[in-house]
Design a binder for these strands. Structure first.
Lengths: 329, 329
DNA sequence: ATCGGCTCTGACAGCGCTGTCAAGTGCTGT
DNA sequence: ACAGCACTTGACAGCGCTGTCAGAGCCGAT
């Protein structure tokens, strides 16, 4: 009933506790036959090393903590998939926590990871301020996903939001649209880069950019969509700063009887599961979140293991996924 | 740079290590002044108790593990919200992990929680087999959310799927529909109860039930929707076993030019964020997942603390949320 | 017979904390 | 002045493991 310890395994295998410890740590100084006997005894007893004790003694836990800023946002699960896959391959455990959209809870989540003794922390969509992040990085290796930072101690993994903004815009221009409006993401991560990608693409083609300021929420998109649909002359196309807001925009347009893509085209950003839903089928800019998650783990483990000093800032190229909401003029 | 220990705090406060330990454990045998000095020294040094050490010594961790079966399903985040809120109030930490939709990984997630020494495990939407769950429950307190089990050692928290199925069906009947089809969720949790809720409600009103078997996925809904839309005489209304599949159904109907709710009504189940999206606006049966999460924590803590023997099976009442996909005939 | 080389043992200290206990310390009331 | 009380101390064992080390045992090779 009580959990078996190393002692128990050693006794069952008829070998010493030290040897069992060596086997558990994967030492190569153990003969195959002994290893097998130990392993057999361990599975027999259902033995599993006590991580708390192991960590206490070894100062490392082979565990990394992943804090997702918002569980509700379909952006994050896929990042988590990538993180989980890469970490598992490297022999690390992943602990998850959510910031529940509040910076304070996010901090608390990170602190509790540190208390538990994780070897490193991954923050996806962090709300925590840049200076707090620096302080954090002094205590534990930190990698931030989905937020651009000019830090020398915090590694980051991002997609190229500038290129993504340009990509979306040029797609619409290629389709023959000229009056293209951008609904932006306010203070949201990557929002300003996406906006300037849009603006420069427009200007490069001799078009006048028009930005409507909003947020990364459905509600904000809905309002913006209604506003645009209510105009005497609605735009020919809209590039929205993320999928959630884009779906809101679709709703707002539908309220006014505007048909997508017959009357106008809409492009989103992030290519979340939402965009892929057949009933929505939103053309969107994809950032390969799975890869971002993997990359983040690699970078983090590098820092944990090698003690790299300088920060690494990875930027991956976005791509466009064409669906049913964008069509030629 | 290195993390401060109790020793350090004691020295800084000019008190003994034993006293610091008492303060950290919230003992009432400490004078207010000493308590304050200790606390002041602790915050000064940025001291945080090492959870691994604490757990090792005390045999309890004040931590519970929450395993979400699938991060991608919008059903779960809200459960997590409730769990987090209730656990925090009770002074417990919550560790999250995902089963990434695979039973084996789910098992692994639970095992790693146990290795870490959580005081109890919460499983939301567990894939793990019933007998495995029993075995698990012998090792650690377990509560399962969103799955009906007839266990004497595992507590459960569910919504009343039977009543929910009836609710959805009667709503459609009340609207004047008679040829109402149910698209079910196959082996999915609660699927069979929802199905029989539908069937009995139909029969109670002298109507003939018709069930199309599908799954809890958008893809399955899409196929079923297309199939129904292609009929010479499509049904007047469809009750779909969950929101994701219902959204698929909407897509399938739209493909065939059927308008919702003008040509037929659609009702989903779960009232996920998907249903609330304006552009979708799906009438759906709501299970109060936040409350379910809270309840699950209460039940779990009861078992952890009191050592209750028998199992508790909570069932909460679902409610209908009317939106734009259902209308009078 | 001797010498490594390999494998294994037993012992020990230590990780940071809990939990218990006998033995203080200082203060109060009488 | 002395008991009684509330608080504090120091000591110790222990949680399950790591990590290191001297040394034992056994093997084949020289």
């Amino acid at each position: 009933m009580t959990k078996p310890t190393m002692e128990d395994v050693a006794r069952a295998a008829g070998l010493s506790r030290a040897l069992v410890s060596l086997v558990m740590r994967g030492s190569d100084k153990v003969s195959d036959s002994s290893r097998e006997r130990v392993l057999a005894a361990a599975t027999e007893l259902g033995y599993r090393p006590n991580l708390a004790a192991r960590h206490l003694a070894s100062k490392r836990s082979l565990t990394i903590g992943l804090v997702l800023n918002d569980l509700h946002n379909p952006f994050f699960p896929e990042v988590a998939d990538g993180v989980h896959a890469a970490a598992t391959e490297a022999g690390y455990h992943v602990l998850l926590n959510s910031g529940y959209l509040r910076g304070a809870l996010e901090r608390e989540a990170v602190e509790s990871f540190i208390d538990l003794g994780v070897d490193g922390v991954l923050l996806a969509g962090a709300r925590i301020g840049a200076s707090d992040l620096e302080q954090l990085a002094a205590r534990v290796p930190v990698t931030v996903i989905g937020r651009h930072l000019r830090s020398t101690s915090v590694d980051t993994v991002n997609n190229d939001d500038l290129a993504g903004g340009r990509l979306a815009t040029e797609h619409l221009i290629d389709l023959g649209h000229r009056r293209i409006v951008h609904i932006d993401g306010g203070q949201g991560a990557g929002s300003s880069q996406r906006r300037s990608g849009y603006s420069t693409a427009m200007r490069d083609h001799g078009l006048e950019p028009e930005v409507i300021s909003a947020q990364f929420t459905e509600e904000a998109g809905l309002r913006a969509g209604r506003r645009l649909a209510g105009r005497a002359q609605p735009p020919e196309a809209i590039f929205v700063a993320n999928d959630l807001a884009a779906v809101g925009v679709l709703g707002g347009l539908a309220d006014h009887g505007l048909r997508v893509p017959d009357d106008l085209s809409v492009v989103g950003y992030d290519n979340t599961s939402l965009a892929g839903i057949h009933h929505i089928s939103l053309t969107s800019v994809d950032q390969d979140r799975q890869t971002m998650g993997r990359l983040a783990v690699e970078v983090l483990l590098e820092r944990i293991g090698g003690g790299r000093r300088g920060a690494v800032h990875h930027v991956i190229a976005p791509s466009l996924v064409r669906r049913a909401t964008s069509a030629p003029r």
